[in-house]
Computed example of a mutant assay.
Amino acid sequence: MSTRHSRAAARLMMTPSVLLLLGWMLIPLGLTLYFSFLRYNLLMPGTETWAGWSNYYYFLTDPSFTTAVRNTLVLVGGVLVITVAGGILLALLLDQPIWGRGIVRLLVIAPFFVMPTVSALVWQNMFMNPVNGVFAWLAQTMGMRPFDFFGRAPLASIVWIVSWQWLPFATLILLTALQSLDQEQMEAAEMDGAGPLSRFAFITLPHLARAITVVILIQTIFLLSVFAEILVTTNGGPGMATTTLTYLIYVQSLLQFDVGMGSAGGVIAIILANIVAIFLMRMIGRNLDR
Rank of each mutant, 00 (worst) to 15 (best):
S2Q: 15
T3Y: 14
S6W: 15
S6I: 14
R7P: 08
A8M: 09
A8V: 14
A9N: 04
R11Y: 15
R11P: 06
M14C: 11
T15R: 05
S17W: 14
L20N: 02
L26W: 02
P28L: 06
L31F: 15
L33M: 12
F35T: 04
S36K: 03
R39A: 14
N41L: 09
W50G: 08
A51W: 13
G52Q: 09
G52K: 09
W53T: 10
F59G: 03
P63W: 07
F65P: 05
T67K: 10
A68N: 03
A68D: 06
V69G: 04
N71S: 02
L89M: 10
L89Y: 07
L94N: 07
D95S: 08
Q96D: 09
P97G: 02
P97C: 01
W99A: 11
W99G: 06
A110C: 12
P111Q: 00
P116E: 01
S119R: 09
S119G: 08
S119N: 12
A120E: 05
W123V: 02
W123G: 01
W123S: 02
N125M: 14
M126W: 15
M128I: 06
N129C: 05
V131I: 12
F135G: 02
W137I: 05
L138G: 07
G143E: 00
M144Q: 13
M144G: 05
P146L: 01
P146T: 01
F147G: 01
D148G: 01
F150T: 00
G151N: 01
P154G: 00
A156W: 13
V159K: 00
W160Y: 13
I161C: 00
V162F: 04
S163F: 05
W164G: 00
Q165K: 13
F169K: 00
A170I: 05
A170G: 06
L175F: 04
L175V: 02
T176M: 11
Q179V: 10
S180L: 11
Q183P: 10
E184T: 08
Q185S: 09
E187I: 05
A189R: 03
A189L: 03
M191N: 12
G193M: 02
A194C: 12
A194N: 02
L197P: 08
R199H: 07
F200I: 05
A201W: 14
T204E: 00
L208N: 04
A209F: 10
A209V: 11
R210N: 14
I212V: 14
V214M: 06
L217E: 11
F222G: 06
L223P: 09
L224P: 11
A228P: 06
I230L: 09
L231M: 13
T233S: 04
G237E: 02
I249Q: 10
I249H: 07
Q256M: 12
D258Y: 07
G260K: 01
M261R: 15
A264D: 03
A269I: 13
A269W: 15
I270V: 15
I270H: 12
A273H: 14
I275M: 14
A277C: 11
R282L: 11
R282Q: 12
G285M: 03
D289M: 10
D289N: 11
